[in-house]
Amino acid sequence: MSSQTVDRARSRSAAERLGDALTGVNAIAYCLVLPAILLRLAFTLVPALQTFWLSFTDKSLMAPGRFIGLANYVAMLSDKTLIGSFGFTLFYTVTSVALETALGLAIAMLLMRQLRARWISNFIMLLPWVMAPLLAATVWKIMFYEDGGILNQILRDLGLISSPIRWLSSANTARGSVVLVTVWKNVSWVALIFMAALAALPKDVYEAAEVDGANAWQRFRAITVPMLRPTIFLVLMFRGMGEVQTFEQIGGLTRGGPGTATQNLAYYAYQRFFQELRYGYGSAINVLLLLLTALIGGFFAWRMYKASSR
């Protein structure tokens, strides 16, 4: 057979395969699955590609936008506020995700032991979960009021502090306060996921370990954590992708302040795009946010896949 014939045979089969793909079972399946997927892509992939394109232009409300290559990205390198908000985004994401995971696992293990009145604890757990992030921020902002606000009042009555905590007006405490609200809002979801995973663990392994004389901490280290690995990575993936793009808590609690102490990437990008109307520069920051989110999601999805296929 000459090479031409082989090529033709190949191209014909490729065409046939394309034909197959558009007829019969495939055609019916595409009719079912494509409407959802196309709508989803129209509102995620398409705008994300536009964001990429805008990030290479100087488009603004006034300017129609010319291609300016990497100029926006070069400008980002010398934008001190941006570098600060990148740093805060990393700090905020790492701290809140770590706290949510550790606390969520602890709460799940505590609640697993409680057998009576489950509906009350479930109801209380679901309250923060069901509240809008902006609503959570609003509620906490009332409690954070500094001179005579309820939190400082309680802490003083308990003798824990002598002077009021500057919840939102000092840079370091404000960073911590934003993390606190996020952890409060999201720890329930983490605890629910861990409770389901804990309930699915085989009981006989624990019994065997107990017979062998392993104490509670040893059982936790040697059995619970290794067997929960896929769930832990799942939690880190979802919460990591969620916290890295936080907007409402920042807007509702501090608006990025004091100064720019709690400015994060999403809030900074929003201000550049919608307040300064610098579409190009705002989009370049959004590209950074997109890459960071995809990196977190991809990394933990990969670890989860490896942990669960072992």
């Binding site: 964001t51 793009q245 929003y270």
Partner: peptide, 11 residues
């Protein structure tokens, strides 16, 4: 799901 809402909001 890895595309943040903020990234799609502007366009």
């Amino acid at each position: 799901m890895a595309i943040p809402a903020m990234v799609t909001l502007g366009p």
